[in-house]
C-alpha cells in the first residue's frame, strides 16, 4: 500500500485529465468569509477512478462544482483535457434529489441526449440500455415523486451515464441506498466503468466504498478543505465487491484511511465547538 503526499503527484506518467493548481474557493456570507477550499494542487490521470473522502462541509461538493463549471475559483487554476469531438466534457450526479419532478424517469434519463439534440433512435437505445442496467425499465413512465429515494438516485446515475461524458462527477450517488442495493450498484458501476474507463471523481462518506471502487483516494481536511493525503489503492481489476472485502489487505487499507479520517472529523468537530463557544 503506497501513500503519496499530494504535492509529489505532479509529473505522473499517465496523461493528465485534470490539473488543479493552488485552488482556493471562499464564499462571502453575512456571517463572514468562509474558506471552503485552500491550497488544492492535484493531477488526475485520464481513466482514473478518483475518490474523495472528508468530513462534512470540507468542500468536496464545492470542488466538483468548480470542475463542472458551476462555481468559479477564487484563486488558482483548473485545466481539464478536452473530450473527444462531440462528447460532453462532464456530467454531474448531484448530491441529493436532482431529478426533474415534471419529467418521467425516461425523460429524465434522456435529458442530456435530448439537450444535445441526438436522434431519437440513439436516445431510445442508450436510455433503454442504462435504465435496464440500473433495473428501472419497469418505471420508465413513472414520475420521480412515485419513486423511493434510492430509485431516484439510480435514475440520476442513468441520466449521467446516458450522456456519455468524458468525465463523470459523482457526488455521494449511493448515499440513499440500502446496503444490498448499494453493493449491487457498486458492482454494476464497476462493470460499466470497466467497459468505458472514464475518468471518474466520486465523493463518498464511506471508507469502504472508497477502497472498493477507487484507484486513488483523496482524504481532505476540514476548515478549510485541503488535500491531506492521497492514497493509492493497489487492488487488481476487474474487482468483485464482496471478494475484495474478504482480503486482509483490504481491511488494512480501510483501517488506515479510517485513522486519518477520524483525526480530521474530530478536528472539524473541535473547530465547530470552538466557534460555538467564542
Amino acid at each position: 500500500m503506497a501513500t503519496v503526499p499530494a504535492s509529489t503527484l505532479a509529473g505522473n506518467v499517465a496523461p493528465v485529465k485534470i490539473r488543479i493548481r493552488d485552488l482556493e474557493k471562499s464564499f462571502d456570507s453575512p456571517a463572514g468569509r468562509v474558506v471552503a477550499l485552500a491550497d488544492i494542487s492535484l493531477d488526475i490521470p485520464t481513466g482514473c477512478f478518483f475518490m474523495i473522502v472528508g468530513p462534512s462541509g470540507c468542500g468536496k461538493t464545492t470542488l466538483l462544482r468548480i470542475l463542472a463549471n458551476l462555481e468559479t475559483p477564487t484563486r488558482g487554476s483548473v485545466e481539464i483535457g478536452s473530450p473527444a469531438v462531440g462528447q460532453p466534457g462532464n456530467s454531474m450526479i448531484f448530491q441529493g434529489d436532482s431529478l426533474f419532478p415534471w419529467m418521467t424517469v425516461w425523460d429524465n434519463a434522456a435529458y442530456g441526449l435530448a439537450m444535445r439534440k441526438r436522434p431519437k433512435s440513439e436516445i431510445d437505445e442508450v436510455v433503454g440500455h442504462y435504465l435496464a442496467r440500473i433495473g428501472m425499465t419497469r418505471f420508465a413512465k413513472a414520475y420521480p415523486n412515485q419513486l423511493s429515494g434510492g430509485m431516484r438516485q439510480r435514475v440520476s446515475i442513468a441520466r449521467a451515464f446516458a450522456n456519455n461524458p468524458d468525465i463523470l462527477l459523482m457526488d455521494e450517488p449511493f448515499s440513499a441506498l440500502d446496503e444490498q442495493n448499494k453493493v449491487m450498484l457498486q458492482e454494476e458501476l464497476l462493470k460499466i466503468w470497466e467497459e468505458t474507463r472514464k475518468t471518474v471523481l466520486f465523493i463518498t462518506h464511506s471508507v469502504d466504498e472508497a477502497a472498493t471502487l477507487g484507484d486513488r483516494i483523496m482524504i481532505m481536511t476540514a476548515h478549510p478543505g485541503r488535500a491531506k493525503r492521497i492514497v493509492d489503492v493497489p487492488f487488481d481489476r476487474p474487482r468483485h465487491v464482496l471478494e475484495l472485502r474478504a482480503q486482509p489487505a483490504y481491511g488494512e487499507l480501510v483501517f488506515s484511511i479510517w485513522g486519518e479520517l477520524r483525526e480530521e472529523v474530530q478536528r472539524a468537530r473541535a473547530l465547530d465547538e470552538g466557534e460555538v463557544r467564542s
Partner: peptide
C-alpha cells in the same frame, strides 16, 4: 434544477422550455 440544465448544456431556450 438550473444547475442540472447548465451541466447538461441546455441552451437558454431549452432552460426556458424544459
Amino acid at each position: 434544477y438550473l444547475d442540472v440544465g447548465h451541466n447538461f448544456r441546455a441552451s437558454r431556450w431549452q432552460v426556458f422550455t424544459t
